[in-house]
Amino acid sequence: MILPTKHIPQNEALIGVGATVLAHLSGPMTVSGLWERLRSERNVGTFERFVLATNLLFLIGAVDIRDGLITRRDT
């Protein structure tokens, strides 16, 4: 579910959902604001998948959360 497999396409795996999240994260945003922007994206689907993808991005160091805002990390 995290990585694509023979039965899970790249855009539906969490890493693909994370790529969609990063593409829509142009500047610091609240989590609810980011969800409102992404809720109509087909591959994001549910709020649960959005949260899992966001957590994955945080764990790998792609995003950071400060003062209630989620931002991209420049590394």
Score class of each variant (00 low, 15 high):
Gly18Lys: 04
Glu36Thr: 14
Ile15Glu: 10
Asp64Glu: 15
Ser40His: 10
Gly68Tyr: 05
Trp35Glu: 10
Pro28Tyr: 00
Phe50Asp: 01
Thr54Gly: 12
Ser40Thr: 14
Phe58Leu: 12
Thr54Ala: 14
Ala19Gly: 15
Thr54Asp: 02
Phe50Pro: 02
Leu59Thr: 11
Gly18Ala: 15
Ile70Lys: 06
Leu57Lys: 00
Ser40Trp: 04
His24Pro: 00
Thr54Lys: 14
Glu36Ile: 08
Leu52Met: 15
Ala23Cys: 07
Arg42Tyr: 03
Trp35Gln: 07
Glu48Met: 06
Glu41Ser: 10
Val17Lys: 02
Gly45Leu: 05
Ala62Glu: 13
Gly18Val: 04
Leu34Glu: 04
Asp64Ala: 14
Glu41Tyr: 01
Ser32Lys: 12
Ile60Cys: 10
Thr54Ile: 13
Ala53Arg: 01
Thr20Ile: 13
Arg72Trp: 06
Arg73Met: 07
Val51Leu: 14
Gly45Gln: 06
Ile15Phe: 07
Gly27Met: 10
Leu59Glu: 08
Gly33Tyr: 05
Ala62Lys: 13
Glu48Asp: 15
Leu52Arg: 12
Asn43Ser: 13
Leu25Gln: 04
Arg66His: 14
Arg72Thr: 10
Ile65Ala: 09
Thr46Phe: 00
Thr20Asp: 08
Ile70Leu: 09
Gly45Ser: 04
Gly27Pro: 01
Ile65Pro: 02
Phe47Ala: 12
Glu36Asp: 14
Asn43Ile: 10
Thr54Met: 11
Asn55Arg: 13
Met29Val: 08
Asn11Tyr: 07
Gln10Lys: 15
Thr54His: 04
Ala62Cys: 09
Leu14Met: 03
Thr54Leu: 15
Leu59Gln: 12
Pro9Thr: 14
Leu22Asp: 09
Arg37Gly: 00
Leu14Lys: 00
Asn43Cys: 09
Gly61Val: 09
Arg66Tyr: 06
Asp67Ser: 15
Val63Gly: 02
Arg73Lys: 13
Ile65Arg: 11
Pro28Arg: 11
Leu56Ser: 05
Leu14Gly: 01
Val21Tyr: 00
Gln10Met: 08
Asp64Tyr: 05
Leu52Ser: 11
Gly18Glu: 04
Arg72Gly: 09
Thr46Arg: 01
Arg37His: 01
Thr46Glu: 05
Arg39Asp: 06
Pro9Asn: 10
Pro28Met: 02
Arg39Ile: 05
Gly16Lys: 04
Leu69Trp: 03
Leu59Gly: 10
Leu14Ala: 08
Asp64Asn: 15
Val63Tyr: 00
Leu56Phe: 10
Arg49Asn: 13
Arg66Gly: 08
Ser40Pro: 06
Leu34Cys: 05
Thr71Ile: 13
Val31Lys: 14
Thr30Ala: 07
Leu57Asp: 00
Gly33Asp: 14
Pro28Thr: 09
Ala13Thr: 04
Val51Asp: 08
